[in-house]
Amino acid sequence: MSSRTNLTREDWIHAAQEVLVTSGVDAVRVDTLAKELKITRGSFYYHFKSRGELLEGILGNWRARATEDVILHLRNAHSSPLQQLQRLLELPSHGQTAKDAASIELGIRGWARRDKQARQAIDEVDSHRLSYIEGLLIQAGVPSGDAQDRAYLIYAYQISLSLLHSEDTPQQRLERSQRMAGILIPESCTLPA
Results as ranks from 00 to 15, higher is better:
94 H>W: 00
98 A>T: 03
26 D>E: 15
134 E>Q: 14
141 G>R: 01
147 A>N: 00
178 Q>E: 03
39 I>L: 13
100 D>F: 05
59 L>I: 04
181 A>P: 00
193 A>R: 08
169 T>N: 14
138 I>Y: 11
10 E>T: 08
22 T>V: 11
165 H>W: 10
188 S>Y: 01
58 I>L: 11
38 K>T: 15
29 R>I: 08
74 L>F: 00
96 Q>P: 04
6 N>P: 03
145 G>L: 12
26 D>S: 14
170 P>C: 10
120 Q>K: 13
33 L>P: 03
148 Q>E: 12
51 R>D: 06
35 K>C: 12
171 Q>F: 12
129 R>Q: 15
15 A>D: 02
70 V>R: 01
69 D>H: 15
109 R>Q: 04
53 E>Y: 06
37 L>S: 12
146 D>N: 14
135 G>E: 11
133 I>T: 11
55 L>D: 05
20 L>Q: 03
129 R>W: 09
10 E>M: 11
128 H>P: 02
54 L>D: 07
62 W>R: 10
71 I>L: 06
14 H>G: 15
75 R>A: 13
68 E>K: 13
89 L>G: 03
140 A>C: 05
112 A>K: 03
33 L>R: 00
103 S>F: 06
137 L>C: 04
118 A>I: 00
164 L>R: 12
37 L>W: 06
172 Q>D: 11
132 Y>N: 07
29 R>G: 09
93 S>F: 00
31 D>P: 09
167 E>K: 15
18 E>L: 10
140 A>R: 03
65 R>I: 10
107 G>V: 05
117 Q>F: 08
24 G>H: 10
155 Y>A: 08
158 Q>I: 02
17 Q>D: 13
170 P>E: 15
150 R>M: 05
168 D>L: 15
183 I>E: 10
143 P>L: 03
20 L>W: 10
15 A>S: 05
102 A>P: 09
50 S>Y: 01
191 L>Q: 04
100 D>L: 07
83 Q>H: 09
148 Q>I: 02
185 I>W: 01
111 W>F: 09
175 E>W: 06
25 V>T: 14
18 E>Y: 04
44 F>D: 13
189 C>K: 02
104 I>V: 15
93 S>V: 01
24 G>Q: 05
127 S>T: 06
92 P>C: 02
23 S>V: 08
116 K>G: 07
190 T>L: 13
150 R>L: 05
149 D>A: 13
64 A>Y: 13
22 T>Y: 12
145 G>W: 10
18 E>D: 08
156 A>D: 06
74 L>D: 04
129 R>G: 10
91 L>R: 02
15 A>L: 05
184 L>I: 02
3 S>C: 13
168 D>V: 11
171 Q>K: 13
147 A>D: 03
106 L>I: 08
158 Q>R: 07
95 G>Q: 03
50 S>F: 01
174 L>K: 14
189 C>I: 01
153 L>I: 01
179 R>C: 04
45 Y>W: 09
